[in-house]
Design a protein around this nucleic acid. Sequence first.
DNA 1: GCCGTTTTCGGCCCGACTGTTTTCAGTCG
Length: 572
Amino acid sequence: MRNKELSNIFERIADALELKGENPFKINAYKKASRIFKELPEDIEVYYKNNTIQEIKGIGEGIAKKVKEYIETGKMHKYDEAMKGIKPEVLEMLNIPQLGPKTLKIFKDKFGVRNLQDLEIALNARELEEFPGMGKKKIENIRKGIELYRQLKGKGRRYLIGEVYPIVNRINSLLKGIGAKHRIEICGSFRRMKETVGDIDILVEGEDEDIIKKFVQFPLFERTLAAGKTKASVIEDATKIQIDLRLVPSISFGSALQYFTGSKPHNMRVREIAKSRGLKLNEYGLFKGEKQIAGTNEEGVYNALGMDWIPPEMREDRGEVELSLAHKIPRLVETSDIKGDLHIHSTYSDGNLTIEEIAEIAREMGYEYIGISDHSISAKYARGLNIETLKRKNCEIDELNKKFKGKPYILKSAEVDILSNGTLDYPDEILKSLDIVIAAVHQGFKKNVTKRIMEAMENPYVDIIAHPTGRLIGKREGYDVDIEKVINYAGETNTILEINAYYERLDLNDINARIAGEKGVMLAINTDTHSKFMFNNIIFGVGIAKRAGLVKDNILNTYPLNKMLKQLKRNG
DNA sequence: GCCGTTTTCGGCCCGACTGTTTTCAGTCG
């Protein structure tokens, strides 16, 4: 799979050309190519073999040729040419906030800056201020940018959506406290439920500039980057995440929401459509000449373009624009469709809630059923259950089921390890005695993982594979696993794959979940809960499912209890 | 470099904020 390599190469070409002051549209074409290869679900070599590289939208003759060259020779002439005279350290400096390609070029060409140390020296040079366009404040802003860059490892730093969630809640209530009475919406990648978020974009309906003034005074901010009449940018103290707030009049709120939700590629497509119909779309509305024809709400904007409203999670230019034009946007799965959580740990292993406490929380949440899936023998680090303890636990579940009278119904389950040697951590007769079994890799991440998972799927009592790739976002790459093979084999063996909703996992991710859905593989959205507050992580898993374009029927735990159990291969 | 129900050439999304300007360039999203 060389998709990622190609994505990186084209990104660096784009950066290098930017520094050289090339035609911005050409640069954009390379950036677009970089994104396309990053998100392409299929291996580029398949396109190469079928001679269909150029059929990918956004890839034309020029880039197709370069891709071919790279696949055949392992080199790309254009890349070498673009990088000529540019050190990687210089490209890296493009990640410094307030320092764009134009300014960096000046430092590079006029001051011989080749790395961050050089840059800091140059910033102190007396003759700098005499340069046209270089003033005291600009220099100071670049200094601040460097400071921020050091703290954040560059503006490319992204935050887990689950980390950002509490900050967003806090700001939301603070805004209500200062009299933001009308619509308040968080847009951007947060609204699209991306697994990571680069910054927080907030829209507030209204025209009272006092809101901006009060907003920048919130105690949780470290500094204000900008504050004008309609827009403010601040840095949050604890995380250093940037938060942008925009004040938008009612008449434009829908178009602003559409605009600031993105994604950028999605918006560009929608604007193209507007333009092709002789209309103009911006954050203030949809216009025919001078006349505004939509903008107070999002639906109105899409409808006026002959499109159906598109759920934010789908807005990545991955085919949703076409679906919308054809009025074929599906009704995606919602958190309210979830009837139970099938991956929960109790105090029997490494959870910190008793089964009874779990059942009470589940009842409050309105769940119909829960699966208590504690770890198996070999998971020593997580106090995995031996067979005797597992039996005792099952007796307790029987008792509690009498007590709770099926509200919720408690399922006997286990998260059973797929051992390094490929066998399962409990014998078949134990697996058979449970209601539902989840199998997972927790050891031997590089040892025949694909084969081991496939063997586990052959077991008639393995119903679900938990976190199938094992990645931890920003922390761990994941198993050495051929996930496409696993997805295909799940289809053949009628095994369910998990979308693990814990925000550090989100595994399967959106792209793999989409592939699974397209192949008719059933998925289960589970939280892997270990403590009370983790139940709420279900929203992140549902977000991934929506990003994958999945509907209720794709998701095992949207079915009522009996129908859900019938989906399991042990019962089919 | 990509792309085409106005085009195979001439467009390419569009605006806010800042700073250094006196009409605009750079950066950002």
